[in-house]
Structures are given as C-alpha cells and as structure tokens.
Nucleic acid binder design. Sequence first.
DNA 1: CTGTTAGCGCCTTCAA
DNA 2: TTGAAGGCGCTAACAG
Lengths: 377, 377
Amino acid sequence: MVSIKDVAREAGVSPQTVSNCINNPAIVKPATRTLVNAAIERLNYTPNASARRLRTQRSNTIAIGIAPVSYSPIYDPLLHALVTEADAHGIRVILYKTDSHQDEIRQFEQLIARGDVDAFVLVNTTHDDPRIAWLNEHRQTFVLFGRPWGRADMHEPDVPWVDVDGRAGIADVTRHLILHGCKHIGFIGWPGLSGTGMDRRLGWRQTMLDARMATPAELDQLSEDAENDIIAGQTACIALLDRRPDIDAIICVSDTIATGVALALPTDTDITVTGFDNTVSAQSLGIPSVAQPLAGAARELVRITQERLRARLAEAAAGNGADAAATVRPTDAGASGGTATGATPNGDTDDGKTGRTTLCGEPDRDHVLLTPTLALR
Amino acid sequence: MVSIKDVAREAGVSPQTVSNCINNPAIVKPATRTLVNAAIERLNYTPNASARRLRTQRSNTIAIGIAPVSYSPIYDPLLHALVTEADAHGIRVILYKTDSHQDEIRQFEQLIARGDVDAFVLVNTTHDDPRIAWLNEHRQTFVLFGRPWGRADMHEPDVPWVDVDGRAGIADVTRHLILHGCKHIGFIGWPGLSGTGMDRRLGWRQTMLDARMATPAELDQLSEDAENDIIAGQTACIALLDRRPDIDAIICVSDTIATGVALALPTDTDITVTGFDNTVSAQSLGIPSVAQPLAGAARELVRITQERLRARLAEAAAGNGADAAATVRPTDAGASGGTATGATPNGDTDDGKTGRTTLCGEPDRDHVLLTPTLALR
DNA sequence: CTGTTAGCGCCTTCAA
DNA sequence: TTGAAGGCGCTAACAG
C-alpha cells in the first residue's frame, strides 16, 4: 500500500504538504500543489481510512439497519440511493442488524464504542420509539427516514426526519384522475391507525372534497380497507365494485393491493387502478404508481447527518470558548415553527428541483417532506 | 471514549497486559486476567476499531454490493443473514454501489486503497464476469453467492462460491407432490438459458423421469416458459391447462410466477401450486415454496472469506520462510475434484445439520452447495 | 508557504 | 508473566 510518505518522496516535499494538498489545498502554493497532485496521480495514492479516522476521531460512516424480513419493497433502492449519496461525500455506509429494538440499541452501543460510526439512519420508527430516546440520551447523531407518527410534536429539534409526502402523492394521483374525466374514484387503504396509511387516505379524501367530487357520506362508500396482500386487494376490489358499480378508478395505498385489484378486474375493464412505490411488479403490470424520490431523500438524510455532526463538533469546540450558544446548532433555526400534524397545505412553496416542501416560508432543515412523483404508463 | 490506558490504570497494570488479555488471554496469569476483565467490564471498554485496523492492517470488514434495483426478493434477508453471521465473528459489513460492472470495479479500487475492506461478496455473477478476473488479478479475497454459471470449470480454486441447490429443492418439491398422489405435475420456468432457471427445471425433469411419471415427450407438454412476472405466470398457467387439462400440480420457478398461476386458477381448484424463495407474498397466498437456507449460506460465505484471508496471510508470512508451498492455501485441497457441471447426484453425502452437500466424499470447502428446505402450508 | 514535532489507540517485538 | 519501546498512516499545531 502506498502511503503519504511515498507521495512526499515522489514529489520531493514533506508528508505534511501532501496532507495539506488533500485536506486544505488553499494553503498550498499552486506550483507545489500541481507537483504533489501529479505524484498522487502517478502513485495512485488514496489516504488510508483507518489512519485518518484514528487521527481525526471521525469515522465518516453512516449506519443503517437491516431487518430479518424486508419491511418495504423500496428498501433496496433506498440503500442504493443512500450509498450513492454517501459515496459522493466520501462517506461509507455500514449495515447493522435490527432483530428487535433492544438488539438494535445493543448494536448502537457496539458501533459507537468501537468508533465505527458517527451517524445513524433509523427506519420504521414507532410512537415513543426507545431508539430515539436512547440516541438522544447518548448525544448521538441520527435522522429518521419516515416521520415519527404518533409523537405529540413531530417537529422537535431533537428528532430530525426525512419523509416522502404520501398525502401529496395520492392527492396528485386523485387530481390526475379527475382531470382525465374520472367521476367516481374509490380508495383502498390499510386498516387501523397506521400514520402512513391514514396520511395517504387523507390525500384522496381531501382532494375529492375540494374538487366537490363526492360528499363525505359518499366517500365512505368509495373507501375500503385491505391488509397489504394481493388477495386482500382482490377482496376489497370486489366489495367496492359491489357497493358502487359506477366506479371508474381505484386508488390503492400500495402496489401490492393495486396488483390484487388489477387482477380482480376483468381484462377489458375501463377502470383505472393506481398503486404506491412504483415497484417492478407494478411496472410490469402497467399500473401507474406514486414513486418515492429516493435520491432526494438520500441527499437530505446525508445532509442532515453531516450538518448536525458539524454542529455537534462546533459545540464541543466552543465548550472552552465563551459565546458557545450564539454560533452553535444552526440547524435548529425555525425547527419549532412547524405544526403538530406536519400538514403541508397546498399553497406552500416548493423549490421544484428537489421537490422539497418548506413550511410557512421558514425553512426547517431538520424536518423535510419530499414530494413524490407520479409514474404513469 | 475509554481507551486501553484507562483500563490499565483502573486495573493497575500496563496497557500491554490489557491488550494481551483481549488478544492472547492464554499468556496472562489468571489472577491478572480476572482483574483486567473486571476493569474492562466496569469501564465498559471496547477496543477502538480504527486503531486496531491501523495496527493490524486488517479491516475485518466484508463488502457487498447494492444495485439500483433489487435483483432478488431474498436480497434483504440475505443481507440480514450476512450481517448477523459477520457480527458473530466481529466482522462488519459495508455496502458499495453496483451501477455497472465497471463502476463496481472502481468501487473495489476505492475500498481496497482506503483499506476499508478485506473481502468481497459478489452477487449476480455472469459468464466471464470481469469482476472475478479483476479481483483475482489484484489478489483480492472474495466469494460468490451463486454459481458462476457458464464458466467451463465451475470448481476452479480461484473462484470460490456458495450457492443453494435449486435443482435439489425443486426435486424435493416434485417428490413431495408425487408422494401425495399427484400424477400430472407441470412446471413453469424461465425462458432462455439462465443457469439458475435451467438447473431448477432439471430438478423437476429428472425426478419425473426417475419416478417414471412421464416420458420425455410428455414432459415437454407439461412444461411452460414465463418471464418473471405475475401476468406471464397467469398466461403460462392457462396455456398449460389448455394443453393438459389433467394436470394436478404446477411447480413454478419463482414465487412471482406461482402467484400468477395461483390467481389464474379457479378458487375451488384442487391443483397444487408451488413457488421458490418463500417470500412473504407466497406466504400470504398460502403457496408452498422452496426456502433458501440464507443463514447457512451466510455462514459459508463468511467462513470462506476468513479461511482464504488466513491462507493469504500465511502465504505472505511464509514468503521469507522456505517451505511456503507446503502449508499455504489449505482451502485449495480437493478443489479441482469437482465436476464441470456442479451436479449433485442424489447419493452424495449430506451432513444434515448444515444441509451442505459434499462432492464424492472429498470436501470442497471453496465450492459449497446448500440444500434448501420446503416451506409447506 | 513548508517542514518538524507529536500523538490518535492499538499491537508486536523484545527485554526485564 | 509483565512492561517498555516503537510504529501502523495520518493530521493539528506550531516553528521556520
């Protein structure tokens, strides 16, 4: 393995100058810099990560959990997006197993104690999640993918998250169908009080009401519940059509349910079916679907962890300085300005490029709701 | 962070003694050892991974790729199994992105140069895979999950792999159906020359012939091809039943196709459908399925990488010594004894516990074929 | 702007 | 059986 010394010798400078060329090029004289860079190129030098980590006490590594059974069809694409984004920042992604919350916390302890990780991405968080409490108690850096549904205040500065606005996605689908002349649009969602599920259903409900496509009483007729499997989707579809044979479109909360619906309908039907997650399965069946912007989500996940890490570092550095509070935790600005529900009124601004919705003009950089796109066929 | 010095002070010994307690307990006096262990416990000490890696020049890290789109429904469970097994050996798993073979090789270069990784798990390998050639040229340690189909010799010592014996799995299913009185057992497989697909089909064919359940001509009638989606499964099912209305069981090469078949059949049918991979989807539909032994596969993947790493280390150490060749590469023993096809005759031994099939009594530790289990409903 | 010094935490000699 | 010295590769602080 070629080390910084080899490069230094090759370029005829000291190891420190080589280091500077890499970590702080501005302070090196351009002539020397090109000299050194040429040597780096020639020797194909890459700094040793362990040595750098040991020296800087930063691992530049994000950890994300992997469960015994996949909790979502988008998990692999999410991992890929995260790895891609992290890679662009020189950050590695390491996996840890999540057999239970308790086991997961044990993994946290291990990873932290060994200095293997400096931030965590948490998935599938629940109301009063012990992992969140533990990480905050131990002053660790983390970010959730998915909102902490059920928390009284979803915009606490201590609990940053990135999520995809399922409600807006389903609202988009609904509007799209209305524009294409659909009159009686049904919805099949998940039963129970799942935050994600209720949020998506609300996207349909609200849009239907706003467009005066149905009365609240009619909406109840147009709505069905189904567990997340194909058979349940079929059953719900049949029940729905039985009650309302005039239906001309069915919006489903997931691609799995949409698959059941599509297969329950006669092949020559005019009824449009839509799904959520834009899985390969939905694609091969030609089902339009709401696609989560995973690259954008990954970008925000990495950004938030890095910003908070920086803030924590600054905080530590300012510990001896006097005016710590003034410069510290810039990411908290406006964090408490959000609403308890995380609602995103349609009138809010959207920067278009990232599809990020900002609340009330006061950007909350620690709680990011991304707008999904509609994958039509 | 608590370091080895803190423990040493706490226990009233030198840092080296603490180090010995951890890495070579045998040479420490029992009394001192318990003293030190108590201090470690009390301070909750864990050695810093970066420092250890820097010192030992071993990363104790395995890398596995993640593709933009999931190539298999078992990938998440595989990752979980791998992380679990690695964890038990004090090894970490890091992800790298695999956008193309060329990109993947670039990732290899990065990971190696930074000293982040000392072994790779390769998935989805193809005939004449450039990654395999590259890794061997650069003397890197790796192991494939899945056989290198299409290679002239699948038992080259340079190309170790772990795979699940799809043929045996499908043969098991076939025998099971025969035992339960099925007379006319159809098969729906993938079109084309996919090694995995052909192997699974062969499991059915051979078992049918051996049991005299059909003539070769009949087998052609009982066989269909389908792309790996639900609709194709439905279509193939209909074609099959059209040709052979007397069919009483349909074995499918995948759960996706099995799903299509199950949905194409009338609800009151007596025809049994089986799948492959035992996905949650198949489970919720009540489809019996062949389950891959992923924990066992992970165990073998880790074992092979570690053995080969050890061998490589010994080789390097013996570089100055004289009789290098004698002790080096113990894992190669019998490696060339396999057959070109990787066929596993039914009479071969099986150690039962791991479900591992050994070839001709000569264990080939670098080419492991695991026997899947049948998940009945 | 460049080089020297020192040390991150650990483990492998080798001496006591 | 235990301890002292040295260095893995890198970078922060300072001296030139």
